[in-house]
């Protein structure tokens, strides 16, 4: 089984035509550039990318889980637990050790999720939502409900504020994550297995694939991406926060959905993650620039999520109608 290729729907067509999500991203950018003052400045674009970077890294993990036909909510609190773990272990383990401890916690939560989902066939949403709650409770208990400050040294803040060759570290990490995701999904055996299991786990089982192990591995790799993000987040806030990034899972799911990854599993590409993440980051940024109240922010978010999903669902029939019309035009 060296050359396992999973046929992906429309893969040939998509190679030549830019996907709809790319056009959508471009449209949103142009729209905001025209409507929002100071949006299309160099400094602001770097800002947008900076916002996008953490979201992007976590969304890479989310994409893997979604391709598997699952969903992962527990990212929202496992990053919080990681930040607290980092700050608590900092005096004993040093900075690198603290970050490693935090990352290990995220991996542990992911492994627990994966084990429960793969071994007991539990619905992923139930397990990860329960885990989101339990881990949030654990994080708050450990911290006593309040943020714990970390000693702000240059080394501690480097993952969030440092630059390599003038490019901020988070952005580099995000790009590397995307490359890793692309490589995993298209050039590794396990990546192709994720598509197969997500598309039809029964067929995968019948063809001799170890489905449970594949799912378990998927959740661990996904939490690996989240672990990278947790290091950057902890470094950025400079403290152990029980309420760190509670919207992270929802934003990453929304980003993947907006990018066009169907939540039914078996499909999804790295480029779609980029588009979805950029749209959400631009939106968040525009809302801040326009100084809109939270209510509008949430309504806009809802409109974008539901609007794009409905459009994607409708695009099939529209394309078909277009095709039929074109063919009829051709024969006449």
């Amino acid at each position: 089984m060296t050359a396992l290729t999973v046929p992906m729907k429309q893969s040939i067509k998509n190679r030549f035509i830019p996907p709809a999500s790319a056009w959508l991203t471009l449209t949103v950018f142009v729209l905001f550039a025209l409507a929002v003052p100071r949006f299309a400045t160099f400094g602001n674009i770097e800002n947008v990318l900076r916002i996008a970077s953490i979201l992007c890294i976590v969304a890479c993990g989310q994409a893997i889980v979604l391709i598997l036909g699952g969903i992962e909510f527990s990212f929202g609190s496992s990053v919080a637990l990681a930040s607290i773990m980092t700050v608590l272990t900092l005096p004993d383990l040093g900075i690198a050790g603290g970050f490693a401890a935090g990352a290990a916690v995220v991996l542990l939560v992911g492994a627990l999720n994966g084990a429960l989902i793969a071994r007991f066939d539990l619905p992923p949403f139930l397990v990860t939502l329960g885990m989101l709650m339990a881990v949030a409770g654990l994080a708050a208990t450990l911290a006593g409900g309040l943020p714990i400050d970390a000693p702000l040294t240059d080394a501690f803040t480097w993952p969030a504020r440092g630059r390599i060759g003038g490019v901020p570290v988070p952005i580099i990490a995000a790009v590397l994550s995307l490359i890793a995701l692309y490589g995993l999904l298209t050039h590794t055996h396990i990546g192709r297995l994720w598509y197969l299991v997500g598309a039809n786990s029964e067929a995968a089982r019948l063809s001799g694939i170890r489905v449970r192990l594949t799912i378990f591995a998927g959740y661990i790799v996904a939490s690996g991406f989240c672990a990278v993000a947790s290091v950057i987040l902890t470094s950025r806030v400079g403290s152990g926060q029980p309420g760190l990034a509670p919207n992270l899972p929802f934003e990453t799911i929304a980003a993947c959905a907006i990018g066009g990854i169907p939540l039914s599993g078996g499909q999804g590409r790295a480029s779609q993650v980029v588009c979805g993440v950029l749209i959400i980051a631009m939106m968040n940024n525009a809302v801040v620039l326009l100084n809109l109240p939270v209510a509008y922010q949430q309504l806009m978010m809802a409109a974008v999520i539901l609007g794009t999903v409905v459009l994607q669902r409708a695009s099939g029939p529209i394309q078909m109608a277009w095709h039929l019309l074109a063919r009829r035009g051709g024969t006449q």
Partner: peptide
């Protein structure tokens, strides 16, 4: 909160 999360799982 932990208890409820564990109950859900």
């Amino acid at each position: 909160q932990i208890a409820v999360g564990l109950v859900i799982i």
